[in-house]
Each structure stands twice: as structure tokens, then as C-alpha cells.
Design a protein around this nucleic acid. Structure first.
Lengths: 342, 342
DNA sequence: CAGCACAATAAAAACGTTTAACTTCAATGT
DNA sequence: ACATTGAAGTTAAACGTTTTTATTGTGCTG
């Protein structure tokens, strides 16, 4: 009364287990009529492939490891919340495949290196999805050397070509700065992620170039790098608004820091649209509920997420990394006027 | 040059693979000296247990399935973001065990049923963690009938006893209402989760009782049930503030709906503290960044999360469900005065 | 019609582990 | 002294697959 195996089907059909296995795997070595017989029998007895047998025999794990660098349990901050949607997007993309998402929550970049090293060397998964890429990312090198399939959420700068998905940060920042400059702003602050992250560099570089094009000067005091929490956004508004020449516009890297920036406005008595404006990049479309709603570049996170899932599948099937590289341009959503008040 | 197995150790030590296996599993059938020999050899050759072999032989999967009901990809709403922290908490609790978290993202309650049915019948995991419990939850019944280890995040009302972790919603709402009543409020709105969720019922019941105790009457127009998105919070403030007798206090079930409520205030020109106040339950401690910061009951989500992980481990080891039930009381954080303005 | 090629299936081995059943041998009791 | 016990190992089977190699039977060629 136990679960049927290929042995059950073999007895049922009078064939050998070898033939049954081949039939179920669409091997050209079995006659179509035989295959039909096997499939019918499988159906009849309610056969379901036992993965453990396959895994032992083939060495494949049918697991995709998702490395999630989450803030430590001590910090209670709104950080990394987009992982929920990221993970479900990946999970959905794998839904019709035999692969499952296996979660590896790590606390730091260093821990993510050792975790990945372990997954690779002990083959605990067939593919890896990793985010928070650095400009020169040792994990990428690690996986490339081992010829291990992976996709990154985020680009790298100094690594050899690999599969990735990312927002088009460069274009987004260029347009963002240009738009604010057009509207009369000359002191534009950039609230940026941690400096060691690749996209932080990309954004900073694009920011400098865009300022240059707009004929504005670069002022290091108007840039900040750190964990994209509300605390960070708030902190920097408090700091920068106290400068002798405070910014009239803030470009925040996500909605958490934008919310914090609002909190800073409130603390300083600043009014959005009068004293300064906030723009942001938005994953969850939550900025529309800010008071007032702000202008954002919006990239619904399920898009890159599902792409990550589809890409890792294709990568595991041997497709070349160069064919699996996409930058997605977030959509501008103008909710506030954003002209410099006189 | 391939990965060492117990066979390697057997050759290395001159023992049989059976003895090696028993030694590594601390069987009383092997002499301590022999065990030491085996362990030394294992160390020397860099032996790592191959799970596939174990899984095939024992039928154990060493997977804990985390069922995550996430909003569909079409809705871009701030919903379910707390799953990120929930998952990492679980993952950390399993860190020193051989178990991994396997993610099952589903789109609806119905899908979660079929997913769980599959996991149980095909034994795709050794334990399940599920959230969003209903008052009478068919999934709980399903798992209980199959005698399958599980822990829920959230209680049930009509099901047989099972392992769970949850916030103490009842006490929280009672205190919350009492506190607002003390401060002069008589029209207190309850922004509640979907009515079929168990904790929605718990909250509603506690709300009614607390009103009764405070000598206030229950008005159905001041309660709302729905998905806890910012949109939902906003919507209800717009609606309720238009009543002839609008509420002077809103109790929101999470920070997303609270943010939306603020958005509703903004749209209606309401001022927090003057026209009405907002209280909320907070997972991420993000309410401190609202403008103005609001009073919340705060439960750092890593606490229940890690408990879920520890509980499922104990449950899989056969501990009785009754020993694995915990309600955690969130901490009151008073950030606003909240007295009724005259 | 012998010989051969080929298509279709079967047999058997292998992946790495656990465990039931069996063997060995020294210590024990009478 | 000798059967009995028990401790400590070994042997062998088993979990469910895939895959290499072997076998069978058929139709074709010369």
C-alpha cells in the first residue's frame, strides 16, 4: 500500500524498470506504443517520480538557492522588505519546473561568501540567485571559477560577464537629475545605498555626469551612502538641511529612505514643494500614499524577480550568460510638480 | 578525486561501511575508540554527509516548507512585506540543524490548501510552517489527519489543539481600546484584516468587549475588513471621515494600513491629533517615521519568526503540540498624546 | 539462406546511506 | 571445561532512480 515506483509500473505492464524509466523520460529508444502503455499504467497507479532516487543517481538537487542578506535580528528597521516579493517572483517563475527555492538567509556580505562557497563545493543546489552585488564581487568570481550557474540581481563592474537582471540605474539617475535641473534645482542631494554596492557606484557616476551636463557643480556634502533604512533618510535630511546652502531636492534610492526623509522634513518643519522636494525609486508603489505623494521611478519588483527565476532556469540548462543580461528601465510616475519654489 | 563517502573512510580505517555509519551516528554499538578513529579519518579526508543518500534511505527530506501567501504579481501593493523578516527568522532558527527552508509561494488560500495537500501526500518536506490561519482552518485539519508536523503563525478557533505562535491580539485590542476610551474617545474605528482570518475575529470580539467595558456602543460602520494595504487604510479613512459622526481614533492592524490612513488624512485635510488620531500594530517599527510618529503596539517580527523555527524543529522531533503554543504580547510604544481634542 | 545490422527491450550496476541479520570472540557462570 | 552471553563488528539488503551493457528478435542484404 506504499507509494508506487517504476517497479510498480514494470510489474503492471510486464516491462522492465529500465524501459519504464526510459519511456517516462521520452527516450527515443522506446516505441511510441510502449511509451503509451507505460504512461497509461503510470496514470492508473498514480505514479509520482521520487526525487530522492533521481537526486542520488544523477547528483542533481533540483534546488535553486536564493541568498538573502537580511538585516540582523537586533535591528528593527524597514530594510530588505522587498525580498518578500523578490522571493515570490522567483518562486513563481520556477513553479512549472521541478526546481524549488531553497532559502539561505545570511547576515552579512562575508557570510554570503562562505554560504555560497559551501553551496558550490558541496553542491547543495543546482543554481544560485544572489543580490546586493559589489563592483568587484568575490562571489561572482567564486561561482565563475567553479562554473556554477547563477544569476545576480544587480550588475558588477569589474567582473567577467555573467547573467544578471537589474534596474537601469544609470539612465534613471541621469533623467532624474536632468528633470530636477530643468525645474530650476541646482542643489540636488543624492541619498545612495552603501558605497560598496555596485549600483551605488553606477548611480554616483551617473549623478556626476548628469550634473555636469546640466552645468551644475558637484558637492560631496550633498551625497550620502548607507543602509537604505528610514533612519538613514531622516538622518541625512536633518544633516543636509542644516547646511548653509541646503539642497532643494532629494533623490532617494528607495521608498524606505524616502519615508525617512519625510520624517526629517517633519522634524525640521520643512514643507514638501515649498522648501524642498523628494524623489525616489520605488519597488512597491507605496510612495503614492505619502503625504503628499511624490514623484518616483517605479519598477514593480515582480518583473525583475520573475526574470531572475526564468534566467536561472535557462542558465542551468547551459545557456550562455551573455544572453541573460537585462537592464529594466523603471517608469517615471510624476505625482508632484517639483518645480523650485521661489 | 571525487567527494569522499563513508566508503572512503571505511578503506581509510579498515572498517566496514556499516561501522563507519554507526560511528558517525553515535550508535552505542561502536566502541568509543573506534568512533574516534572514524571521526579522525572523516576529518582527515574532509568527509561531508551526502544528504541524497540519507534521504533516499530514510525518506526524510530535511526540508521545512514555508507557505507564503503573497499578493499576485499584478497588484503592486505594500502587502506581505513582513514575510521577508519572517522567513529569515525561520531560516536562522534552523541554521544549526540539517534542515533548510523550502519556499512555497502561493497566490491564494485555496492554492495553499492544494500545495499543503501535495507536500503532505508526497512528503516533500518534514514539516510545514503556515500563516494566515482561518478560524476553522482546513489546512490545519488536513495536516492533523495526516499526523504531519506543522506550526502556524496565528491561532485557530475551531480546530483541535496544534502548535502555534501569534501576537496576543485579544489583550492588545482590549488595552488599545481602553487606552483610547480613557483619553476621551467614544468613536473608535477598527481597521481589521480580512474577515476570514482568525485574528480578525479575535480582534473584533476583543474590540466589542472592550467597548462594552468602557460603556461605549458598538457601531458596525466603524469597522472594516480587508487586505491590509495602504489603499485599504486610505479608503476607509475617506469613507468613515465622511460619516455624520466620524471616528476620532483609528486602530489599524498594521503599519501599511496606518500609512494609508495618513494618506486619507492628507486627502481630507485632517490633522493628526486635532481631528483624529491613528494607532497601529507594528512589525517593523516603521511608525516612528510617520509624520507625526504614532502610538503603536510593537512586536519585532524576528521574535515570533525564530520561535516558529524552533517550534517546528521540536515538533518534528515529536514534541506534543500543546507544549508549543505561545502568544506574545506586543509592547506599547506611546509616541503621540492621543487625547481627544476639544 | 547465412550473415548482419538495427530496433527494442532486459539485465545489472551504480549513486550513498542506514539497518536488520548475522558472525566473531572474549568474558562469564556453573 | 564448556555452553552462554554480550559486545563489537561485518555482511548484505534496501531505498528509487538512471544508464551502460547485454540480449533478443526482426528485416534486410548479398
Amino acid at each position: 500500500m506504499s507509494r508506487p515506483t517504476i517497479k510498480t509500473i514494470a510489474q503492471e505492464t510486464g516491462l522492465s524498470i529500465a524501459t519504464v524509466s526510459k519511456a517516462l523520460n521520452d527516450s527515443p529508444q522506446v516505441r511510441p506504443e510502449t511509451r503509451a502503455l507505460v504512461v497509461a499504467a503510470a496514470e492508473r497507479v498514480g505514479y509520482q517520480l521520487n526525487m530522492h532516487g533521481v537526486q542520488l543517481r544523477t547528483g542533481k538537487t533540483y534546488q535553486v538557492a536564493a541568498i538573502m542578506t537580511a538585516p540582523g535580528p537586533k535591528q528593527n528597521e524597514w530594510e530588505g522588505v522587498e525580498y518578500a516579493q523578490l522571493l515570490s517572483g522567483i518562486s513563481w517563475a520556477l513553479e512549472d519546473s521541478p526546481y524549488r527555492v531553497s532559502l539561505y538567509a545570511v547576515r552579512s556580505f562575508e557570510e554570503s561568501i562562505t554560504t555560497i562557497r559551501q553551496i558550490v563545493s558541496l553542491k547543495k543546489a543546482d543554481g544560485i540567485i544572489v543580490s546586493g552585488t559589489h563592483a568587484d564581487d568575490p562571489r561572482v568570481r567564486l561561482m565563475q571559477e567553479a562554473d556554477f550557474p547563477f544569476v545576480t540581481y544587480g550588475t558588477t563592474i569589474h567582473n567577467a560577464p555573467h547573467a544578471y537582471v537589474d534596474a537601469d540605474n544609470e539612465q534613471m539617475i541621469r533623467l532624474s537629475v536632468a528633470r530636477l535641473a530643468e525645474r530650476g534645482h541646482s542643489r540636488i542631494a543624492l541619498i545612495n545605498p552603501m558605497a560598496d554596492l555596485s549600483y551605488s557606484l553606477t548611480r554616483l557616476e551617473a549623478y556626476r555626469q548628469a550634473l555636469d551636463i546640466a552645468g551644475l557643480s558637484f558637492n560631496p556634502a550633498l551625497t550620502a551612502h548607507g543602509h537604505l533604512t528610514p533612519a538613514f533618510g531622516r538622518e541625512n535630511v536633518l544633516l543636509m538641511s542644516g547646511l548653509s546652502n541646503p539642497p532643494t531636492a532629494y533623490i532617494c534610492a528607495n521608498e524606505a529612505s524616502a519615508l525617512g526623509a519625510f520624517s526629517g522634513f517633519h522634524a525640521r518643519g520643512l514643507v514638501h514643494g515649498r522648501d524642498a522636494v523628494i524623489n525616489a525609486t520605488d519597488d512597491l508603489n507605496v510612495s503614492q500614499y505619502f503625504a503628499p505623494p511624490i514623484t518616483t521611478y517605479f519598477l514593480p519588483i515582480h518583473e525583475p524577480s520573475e526574470m531572475l527565476g526564468r534566467y536561472i532556469l535557462r542558465r542551468m540548462e547551459g545557456e550562455t550568460p551573455q544572453a541573460l543580461q537585462t537592464l529594466i528601465m523603471p517608469k517615471l510616475i510624476e505625482r508632484s510638480d517639483d518645480r523650485l519654489a521661489k
